[in-house]
Design a binder for these strands. Structure first.
Lengths: 226, 226
DNA sequence: CGCTGCGTTGAGCTTCTTCAACGATCGTGG
DNA sequence: CCACGATCGTTGAAGAAGCTCAACGCAGCG
């Protein structure tokens, strides 16, 4: 796709003038990353940020012994790693493509100049960062205050809403990756899904989950015990 | 203290002109909150944000059964609850004064106008939000990938650095609050501190902790097992 | 056709929480 | 000024949640 045409679909760039889109297109570079390929590593200098054009990207942390916690999943139109641009520090996490993906890169200095000249762009970026903060607060709440069934239920309801409130949701990532996103491991996730199925709250069909008792999942997501 | 004089000490407002400080002072209101008094509650409309002038403020989430997770502690000069200004949504957490505190409030609409007119202020705010994001990412990493001793060690080292790399650190909050900040409960924190003391890594003297073996704490913070 | 990664299941174990009790401290009101 | 109550911190014993380790079926892909 034409760069400018794609940029016009990115919420972060809403409300810019055609001339401003041209400026953005001027400073952007794009690359294609294959499935499983790293985009950057924790500690890399944060010389700019990215926008996903197509595909799926995970941002994640690793522990010493190799356990992974996914911080975010980003799809088409989502910006990521913006924060490093403004703290001037290095990336605090890893990024990897979960599918073949096309991503745009915006170099730090040029983008900062654009922001300084464009209050709308600055406001959009403030909104984007604020949304990320809100999501992080949610993740912290889930990790600290809810048990795995609660996190799982909350995530299934989130997916359902994201997929048009359908009762049958498609997991956008493998169950192993889902476990990492929920702050647990594949074995535990598998057991919990089986448990919810046995309770009659849902049915599992590979990566398709059908919600049978939405209200029960809502209770779980709110913190009720299983 | 004079409002304008204080505002000049806030990093968020660095680099503004005297006229801009006057504008800020114009839109700000201040209040004094007593120890234990709530500032806002989850779900309150986010009509503005705050800056701490003096005292100590906690931002926290509560679970159904009353467990608390502190997201952030804010002291003099720190802005908080900025994100709600830019998402336009309600506060996603609670705020309470841990000590008698003086705080300034900046109403949303007036502040947004200031930001749009002041690229420096916008950049400062972007930097502030980015810092919060980074801290949140750190908290998520700790909660998900480290066990309690690791989180505790990391926090003690953080306090030490914050207090001029002294080997004796003063806990700025009660141990109960520290437990909530670390995503655990007072009993567990107490046991872990006792364990670290028994290992000879530190000594405990009420709210004073003296680090005896910094390298061991660093190992723990990095994810080594106790 | 074999290999590799994913998903599932079982058994045992570690970590942390829960529940309970108790001493110390601190602020307050008598 | 003392006494009281409330909160905080600590310790013990028991229990729950989730992780580790191991084995195995299965599908996709080279």
């Amino acid at each position: 796709m034409e760069i400018t045409k794609f940029l016009a679909t990115v919420p972060l760039f809403d409300g810019l003038t055609p001339a401003q889109y041209d400026e953005l297109a001027m400073i952007a570079t794009d690359q294609t990353v294959r499935k499983g390929q790293p985009i950057f590593t924790e500690g890399d200098p944060g010389n700019g940020f990215y926008v996903v054009a197509s595909g799926l990207v995970k941002i994640y942390k690793l522990s010493l012994d190799g356990k992974e916690q996914i911080l975010h999943l980003f799809g088409p139109g989502d910006p990521f790693a913006e924060a490093a641009v403004f703290t001037g520090s290095s990336f605090p996490a890893h990024a990897m493509a979960l599918e073949e993906s096309r991503i745009f890169f915006f170099p730090r200095q040029a983008f900062i100049e654009l922001i300084r000249a464009n209050p709308d762009l600055a406001m959009n970026m403030l909104a984007a960062l604020s949304m990320h903060l809100k999501k992080f607060a949610h993740l912290i709440e889930n990790l600290s205050l809810k048990e795995v069934p609660g996190r799982l239920a909350a995530h299934l309801l989130f997916l359902s809403e994201q997929q048009g409130d359908s009762d049958t949701v498609a997991l956008p990532v493998s169950k192993t990756q889902l476990a990492s996103l929920l702050g647990t491991i594949p074995e535990t996730l598998s057991r919990m899904l089986a448990k919810l199925a046995k309770q009659g709250y849902l049915t599992i069909n590979g990566p398709q989950i059908t919600i049978l008792q939405r209200d029960r999942l809502e209770d779980l997501a709110a913190g009720e015990k299983l």
